[in-house]
Nucleic acid binder design. Structure first.
Length: 490
RNA sequence: CGGGAUGUAGCUUAGUCCGGUUAAAGUGCUGGUCUGGGGGACCAGAGAUCGGGAGUUCGAAUCUCCCCAUCCCGACCA
């Protein structure tokens, strides 16, 4: 009997939560808003992390590590930055506990109060720029291209597994440049790097663009972003790259001497992607049977399940699969033979399907006799019988095909759910169904806010390099030079 | 922080309104036998201070009060 799980149609948000548990990705911890990332979930994150790390290094960046704690005073050095984060900071006020006098356990020792409170980093601009002040003196020290893999804490009011947690894992790049132009180029380079990664590896199509002033990072002059459309029609911000101008250089007094010996403030960028990408991955490809993983980031690409009635059959089947394992290994394909005798085949089928393993092989006495193997595709949920000999070549090419087909499927979903709208009445009606809406906007904060209040939709981005198209703002009728992308977002 | 709901075995829940044997079931877990081509069957077992505290009562999972936690809807969300 197949266990009954909630479908996407019945309750999308419940489906998401159940899937995270069922695929063994993560679970809620006893700490509010925090999650435990389980080994399988972490393995997927590691695949993403490793690939991104390669790409950062290929583009000249180095990894470093800065402290978890930030002196409270640092945060307030950049005015808009503190405004953006102050409301969600965890604060360390004491450094010691002691036994309660009534024996009820440990209590905070009031004598151990910190002179200056420490903030648990919500992001590291301030502590990093405080170091950069000492690292940068001359144009010869630039550009400085640093990345950090870390955890950060943002005390969110409401949390969801992977999509918004109080503590999350991410990478944050922080670069310093001699010229404005170079810093902007870096910001854009990372935008394209992120888009390339999310599309090529996660098979998730993204829109590239810039944020409106209202949605911009606290302390940035320009925020570039990639936006993905989830299956339920909501948008998910998958990554951001910020042009920080000289804001942090001025706040932390970071100047360099140029070739003429003149002192200038340096130009900065910062950029990050987080474990939220896991949420994007889940909500882009998965179905009512569970997780669906693109081969390039699946921790396991091929699983083999033997079906047998006795030990001899098992041994014979395992011999075949072990030979295949070596061939696949040579082709760079990850493979696991699940010969665990405690689980029956049907259970294993369901299990690996839940976990999104792209290809499943099964071999039983019938196949053994005929030299065949059954191959099931996770993405299409189809299965076929193939000759066992030479199956490795087919598997190798099929993985590529699955990767492409997942991307195309997601792209098609986005295309059919992207609409041009010109009247606000239409917009208000259609936005309820979800999707991306390309509409004209007069460029004012007031209009943006009004739309958000009335429809809960926000401007996800002003498309990057979008062709100019004159039109009239759908709300105020004022002039507009190009369409922007509206959606309800996570 | 406002509105609503919930807390009973690892998990999902019944029992609570109307107090009364040893707190029940499914699933999961342990051992065993049969099995094995889509989440197996049977047998035996372990597993709960009924979220915490105080009170009412001969007697509390059940009634009263206080506290805590979680979830949903708002507000908030680089």
């Amino acid at each position: 009997m197949a266990q009954k799980f909630v479908t996407r149609k019945e309750d999308y948000s419940k489906w998401y939560n159940e899937l995270v548990y069922r695929a063994d990705l993560a679970e809620h911890s006893d700490v509010r808003g925090c999650m435990v990332i389980k080994p399988y979930g972490y393995a997927i994150w590691e695949k993403m992390k490793n690939q991104l790390d390669i790409m950062f290094k290929e583009t000249g960046h180095s990894n470093a590590y800065f402290p978890l704690f930030i002196p409270k005073s640092y945060l307030s050095k950049e005015a808009s930055h503190v405004d953006g984060f102050a409301k969600e900071c965890a604060v360390v006020t004491h450094y010691r506990l002691k036994n309660a006098e009534d024996g009820s356990g440990v209590v905070v020792d009031p004598d151990a109060k910190l002179e200056e409170e420490l903030i648990v980093r919500p992001t590291s601009e301030t502590i990093i720029w405080n170091s950069y002040k000492n690292w940068i003196q001359s144009y010869r020290d630039l550009p400085l291209l640093i990345n950090q893999w870390a955890n950060v804490v943002r005390w969110e009011m409401r949390t969801r597994l992977f999509l918004r947690t109080a503590e999350f894992l991410w990478q944050e790049g922080h670069t310093a440049h001699a010229t404005k132009q170079e810093a902007i180029e870096e910001t854009e380079k990372i935008l394209h790097l992120y888009a390339d990664f999310v599309e090529s590896y996660m098979a998730t199509p993204v829109l590239k663009g810039t944020k409106t002033e209202a949605e911009r990072f606290a302390g940035a002059e320009e925020t570039y972003c990639i936006e993905a459309l989830m299956q339920d029609g909501k948008a998910l911000q998958a990554g951001t790259s910020h042009f920080l101008a000289q804001n942090f250089a001025k706040a932390f007094d970071v100047k360099f001497a140029d070739k003429e010996g003149k002192l200038e403030y340096v130009w900065a960028t910062s950029w990050g992607v987080s474990t939220r990408l896991m949420g994007a991955l889940i909500m882009t490809h998965s179905d009512d049977q569970g997780l669906v993983l693109p081969p390039k980031i699946a921790p396991l690409q091929v699983v083999a399940i033997p079906i047998y009635k006795n030990e001899d059959q098992l041994n014979e089947i395992c011999k075949h699969f072990k030979a295949l394992e070596n061939k696949l290994k040579a082709l760079g394909v990850s493979f696991k033979l699940d010969d665990d005798d405690n689980r029956r085949p049907g259970w294993k089928f369901a299990e690996y399907e839940s976990k999104g393993v792209p290809i499943r092989l099964a071999m039983g006495p019938r196949d053994l006799e005929n030299g065949k193997v059954e191959l099931a595709r996770r993405d299409t949920r189809t299965k076929e019988i193939f000759d066992f000999n030479g199956i490795e070549t087919y598997i190798k090419s099929l993985l590529t095909e699955i990767q492409e087909s997942l991307f195309n499927r997601a792209l098609e979903h986005r295309t059919t759910n992207t609409h041009l709208v010109d009247s606000y009445e239409d917009f208000k009606k259609q936005i309820k169904k979800g999707g991306f809406f390309m509409a004209h906007w007069d460029g004012t904060k007031e209009t943006e806010l009004l739309i958000k209040e009335q429809t809960q939709a926000t401007i996800r981005c002003i498309p990057y390099n979008a062709p100019e198209e004159t039109g009239k703002c759908m709300v105020t009728g004022k002039e507009s030079k190009r369409r922007v992308v509206f959606a309800k977002a996570y």
